[in-house]
Simulated assay, not measured.
Amino acid sequence: MASSAAFRDLQRDLETRANELSKLQKEIASHHQRRKTYTIQLGENELVLKELDLLNEGANVYKLIGPVLVKQDLAEANANVRKRIDYMTAELKRVDGILQDLEAKQNSKKDGILKLQQRLQSLQAGTGKA
Protein backbone atom coordinates (compact mmCIF):
# COMPACT_ATOMS: atom_id res chain seq x y z
CA MET A 1 0.00 0.00 0.00
CA ALA A 2 2.78 2.38 0.89
CA SER A 3 4.40 1.67 -2.45
CA SER A 4 1.20 2.57 -4.36
CA ALA A 5 1.01 5.91 -2.50
CA ALA A 6 4.68 6.53 -3.29
CA PHE A 7 3.98 5.59 -6.91
CA ARG A 8 1.10 8.10 -7.14
CA ASP A 9 3.26 10.81 -5.55
CA LEU A 10 6.02 10.15 -8.07
CA GLN A 11 3.53 10.24 -10.93
CA ARG A 12 2.15 13.58 -9.69
CA ASP A 13 5.67 14.94 -9.35
CA LEU A 14 6.49 13.74 -12.86
CA GLU A 15 3.38 15.43 -14.26
CA THR A 16 4.23 18.69 -12.48
CA ARG A 17 7.79 18.63 -13.80
CA ALA A 18 6.58 17.83 -17.31
CA ASN A 19 4.26 20.86 -17.19
CA GLU A 20 7.12 23.06 -15.96
CA LEU A 21 9.30 21.77 -18.80
CA SER A 22 6.56 22.52 -21.30
CA LYS A 23 6.25 26.12 -20.03
CA LEU A 24 10.02 26.50 -20.21
CA GLN A 25 10.07 25.21 -23.79
CA LYS A 26 7.37 27.73 -24.78
CA GLU A 27 9.42 30.52 -23.21
CA ILE A 28 12.51 29.35 -25.10
CA ALA A 29 10.56 29.31 -28.36
CA SER A 30 9.34 32.85 -27.67
CA HIS A 31 12.90 34.06 -27.08
CA HIS A 32 14.10 32.30 -30.24
CA GLN A 33 11.40 34.13 -32.19
CA ARG A 34 12.47 37.43 -30.63
CA ARG A 35 16.10 36.64 -31.52
CA LYS A 36 15.11 35.88 -35.10
CA THR A 37 13.28 39.22 -35.37
CA TYR A 38 16.28 41.15 -34.04
CA THR A 39 18.63 39.29 -36.39
CA ILE A 40 16.49 40.18 -39.41
CA GLN A 41 16.20 43.82 -38.33
CA LEU A 42 19.94 44.01 -37.70
CA GLY A 43 20.65 42.69 -41.20
CA GLU A 44 18.26 45.22 -42.73
CA ASN A 45 19.84 48.10 -40.82
CA GLU A 46 23.36 47.02 -41.74
CA LEU A 47 22.26 47.01 -45.38
CA VAL A 48 20.82 50.52 -44.98
CA LEU A 49 24.08 51.68 -43.41
CA LYS A 50 26.06 50.31 -46.38
CA GLU A 51 23.75 52.16 -48.75
CA LEU A 52 24.09 55.39 -46.77
CA ASP A 53 27.88 55.05 -46.88
CA LEU A 54 27.72 55.00 -50.68
CA LEU A 55 26.00 58.41 -50.83
CA ASN A 56 27.76 61.74 -51.38
CA GLU A 57 27.68 64.45 -48.68
CA GLY A 58 24.95 66.50 -50.35
CA ALA A 59 22.69 63.58 -51.29
CA ASN A 60 19.03 63.75 -50.37
CA VAL A 61 17.90 61.19 -47.80
CA TYR A 62 14.26 60.59 -46.96
CA LYS A 63 12.76 58.81 -43.99
CA LEU A 64 9.36 57.14 -44.15
CA ILE A 65 7.19 58.34 -41.28
CA GLY A 66 3.74 56.85 -41.59
CA PRO A 67 2.58 57.47 -45.17
CA VAL A 68 4.92 60.48 -45.66
CA LEU A 69 8.54 60.72 -46.81
CA VAL A 70 10.37 63.35 -44.76
CA LYS A 71 13.71 64.80 -45.86
CA GLN A 72 16.50 63.99 -43.40
CA ASP A 73 20.12 65.06 -43.07
CA LEU A 74 22.57 62.35 -44.18
CA ALA A 75 24.62 62.58 -40.97
CA GLU A 76 21.46 62.34 -38.87
CA ALA A 77 20.23 59.33 -40.85
CA ASN A 78 23.65 57.69 -40.45
CA ALA A 79 23.63 58.32 -36.69
CA ASN A 80 20.07 56.97 -36.32
CA VAL A 81 20.90 53.76 -38.18
CA ARG A 82 24.07 53.24 -36.14
CA LYS A 83 22.09 53.71 -32.90
CA ARG A 84 19.55 51.12 -34.05
CA ILE A 85 22.35 48.70 -34.93
CA ASP A 86 23.93 49.21 -31.48
CA TYR A 87 20.56 48.69 -29.79
CA MET A 88 19.79 45.51 -31.74
CA THR A 89 23.28 44.12 -31.15
CA ALA A 90 22.86 44.71 -27.40
CA GLU A 91 19.40 43.12 -27.45
CA LEU A 92 20.75 40.09 -29.31
CA LYS A 93 23.45 39.64 -26.65
CA ARG A 94 20.83 39.98 -23.91
CA VAL A 95 18.47 37.47 -25.56
CA ASP A 96 21.37 35.06 -26.15
CA GLY A 97 22.21 35.23 -22.43
CA ILE A 98 18.60 34.56 -21.50
CA LEU A 99 18.45 31.65 -23.95
CA GLN A 100 21.60 30.09 -22.52
CA ASP A 101 20.15 30.32 -19.03
CA LEU A 102 16.78 28.90 -20.09
CA GLU A 103 18.38 26.06 -22.04
CA ALA A 104 20.51 25.15 -19.02
CA LYS A 105 17.33 25.07 -16.90
CA GLN A 106 15.65 22.96 -19.58
CA ASN A 107 18.48 20.44 -19.54
CA SER A 108 18.35 20.31 -15.75
CA LYS A 109 14.59 19.71 -15.82
CA LYS A 110 14.99 17.00 -18.46
CA ASP A 111 17.59 15.25 -16.30
CA GLY A 112 15.27 15.46 -13.30
CA ILE A 113 12.37 14.03 -15.30
CA LEU A 114 14.54 11.22 -16.61
CA LYS A 115 15.66 10.27 -13.09
CA LEU A 116 12.05 10.41 -11.89
CA GLN A 117 10.96 8.15 -14.76
CA GLN A 118 13.69 5.68 -13.86
CA ARG A 119 12.53 5.67 -10.22
CA LEU A 120 8.96 5.07 -11.37
CA GLN A 121 10.07 2.17 -13.59
CA SER A 122 12.09 0.60 -10.82
CA LEU A 123 9.15 1.01 -8.44
CA GLN A 124 6.85 -0.58 -11.01
CA ALA A 125 9.26 -3.46 -11.52
CA GLY A 126 9.47 -4.00 -7.75
CA THR A 127 5.67 -3.87 -7.40
CA GLY A 128 5.13 -6.26 -10.30
CA LYS A 129 7.38 -8.89 -8.71
CA ALA A 130 5.76 -8.74 -5.28
Rank of each mutant, 00 (worst) to 15 (best):
P67Y: 04
N19C: 02
L123K: 05
A79N: 12
Q41E: 09
L92H: 05
A2Y: 10
Q117M: 11
N78C: 03
R8P: 00
Q100W: 04
E20M: 15
L54E: 04
K93R: 12
V68R: 14
L14E: 01
A90W: 08
T89M: 10
R84A: 10
K71N: 00
Q11G: 06
R8I: 01
V48I: 13
G43A: 06
S3C: 02
N80S: 14
D9C: 03
G43S: 10
I40H: 13
Q121Y: 05
N80C: 07
R84S: 09
S3D: 00
N56I: 01
R84D: 00
I40Q: 15
I65E: 12
Q33M: 09
V48R: 11
Q72M: 13
E15A: 15
L102F: 02
Q25N: 15
G112N: 05
L54N: 12
E44S: 14
L92G: 06
E91T: 02
K129N: 05
G43F: 00
E44A: 13
L114H: 13
A104C: 02
D9H: 05
G43W: 07
S4H: 04
A5N: 08
A104I: 01
N19L: 13
G58M: 10
I98M: 14
L99C: 01
T16M: 11
A79Q: 15
N78T: 12
G43H: 03
K71E: 01
V48K: 11
A79R: 14
R84G: 09
A18K: 12
Q41N: 08
D53P: 00
T37P: 04
L47R: 15
H31C: 04
V81C: 11
S108R: 11
K115M: 06
K63D: 01
Y87Q: 12
R82M: 09
D53F: 09
L114G: 03
R8H: 00
F7D: 07
E27V: 02
T37H: 06
A90F: 01
L42H: 14
A104T: 04
Q72E: 11
Q100C: 07
K93N: 08
D96Q: 07
L74T: 01
R84M: 08
M88V: 01
K83G: 10
G97Y: 01
D9Q: 09
